[in-house]
Design a binder for these strands. Structure first.
Lengths: 252, 252
DNA sequence: ACCATACAGATTGTACACAACACTAATGAA
DNA sequence: TTCATTAGTGTTGTGTACAATCTGTATGGT
């Protein structure tokens, strides 16, 4: 009766890494995850179990599982007895995360240069084009998400599951950091750099590819100025495309 | 009546990374985790929620949380509707995990050489001594666990939380791999190599420290290669030459 | 004897009720 | 007014009942 509400969600969101279909909690995880990566949920936003349960039409049990996964990936922080919030990072933590990413991206890139097939490179190009379009038409949120997914895709090509899952966590955290610290006006068009990376991969120029990647990360780090941003912290607004239904007739 | 049973457990188990105290599920997580690292739980063992609940004197809710964390760290695998089992890795997965560890350990070691204080080095020495004692008195399980904790401690000294949590997951998985593939008779006394590592750190000889670490990992991997043809109880590995088929649908 | 289907037992998946805790507001005294 | 205590309200934490699902066994047909 009050179930399966979420089935009416727009499809575009369900394609985080193009393999997000599955159980309820996975779907919900993906929605929240994407919302965070697209900066529709900004750092510090409280994620109330009951609200989310109403929004997605499931019980708190399911929400809890989705949140617990996000907590594990360090995208959400759980404050005991006080609920979960979208993670906020200090500048020092941000530097540490970017450092870790440097370590992983270097290894990933070396594997990518060795492993990348032509089809992989085509897909990468398509992805960066999509990213470019998003920025061009002003959909900054989706652009930032696709930018992160570009790096995830690299880790997929590298074909090491451990590195991939670590990369997933790091990329998400980086998106949060960008959301938190980067001035909104800066176009953040990493597309050019992404195209350069692809070119180096295509040429099998490992050294240049790695060096470009390091510079790419330098640029992210350089942009860590303190700046404010304004997005919504209203859960219902973020997920407004869902028909939010009242749970039960009891207690309003 | 059947609650708080676990309070009477021996204390020695509660010191995984010397900061394991906390909520119920964290305690239980630690106990299972240690049991796996000490190879008292071997790969493939089923972890029934109800049994564990009885053993620890808590409801399935808590057990589920502990298991979910273990699943996230890839130490336990969850089979939908059929419960959780201690993870088994194929040889290929094992190689990938060790590769990822190579990446992380190199970065960690470079940081350690830069950051290590005298007190850190003392603690490392104590830890390896404890490890040595365990092997000497035949407690192989605890020895293996301490051996892993040595590497975790290095990641702590490196002082990068992201790398540390990745390292935790990788080290646990490596312990599983060793449990699965390494012949029991081999002494696995990595203590000597650990002492050598400490010496290089003490001398601030970064290059040598990194190289020793790589060799250390080579040795782990070499042992796998020796066992390459050994029988496995992992069906996927045994029948890996078959193309895995999609699950059959309703139309039989 | 063989195969398929149906049933039975056990285990996990989900929802919900209630307990425990944290924050807020209100009350009263100095 | 200000501070301390306390009651109230809302949210999370945990246990448990029931539903859904899977595995193994038994039954019946060929």
């Amino acid at each position: 009766m009050n179930k399966k509400l979420y089935e009416s969600m727009p499809d575009k969101l369900s394609g985080t890494t193009s393999k997000s279909r599955g159980t309820q909690d996975e779907l919900i995880y993906t929605h929240i995850f994407d919302a965070i990566l697209e900066q529709r949920l900004i750092p510090g936003t409280k994620l109330s179990e009951e609200s989310l349960g109403e929004i997605f039409g499931v019980s708190r049990t399911i929400i809890r599982r989705a949140l617990s996964r996000l907590v594990h990936e360090k995208v959400v922080v759980n404050r005991p007895n006080r609920g979960a919030v979208v993670a906020t990072q200090t500048l020092e933590e941000a530097r540490q995360i970017i450092f870790a990413r440097r370590v992983v991206e270097k290894a990933v890139m070396e594997l990518v240069v060795d492993n990348a097939q032509l089809s992989d490179i085509e897909k990468l190009k398509d992805q960066v084009c999509a990213e470019q379009e998003c920025f061009a038409k002003g959909d900054r949120g989706a652009g930032i998400r696709l930018s992160g997914e570009f790096h995830l895709h690299l880790a997929e090509i590298a074909n090491n599951p451990s590195l991939l899952s670590f990369q997933r966590s790091l990329v998400s955290q980086c998106s949060l950091i960008i959301a938190q610290y980067e001035s909104g006006s800066k176009s953040h068009c990493s597309c050019d750099e992404h195209f350069e990376l692809i070119e180096a991969i295509e040429n099998k120029d490992k050294e240049r590819a790695v060096q470009l990647m390091m510079h790419h990360l330098d640029h992210i780090q350089d942009k860590l100025n303190l700046e404010d941003e304004a997005a919504t912290d209203d859960l219902r607004a973020v997920f407004s495309y869902l028909k939010s239904k009242k749970r039960r007739k009891t207690s309003n």
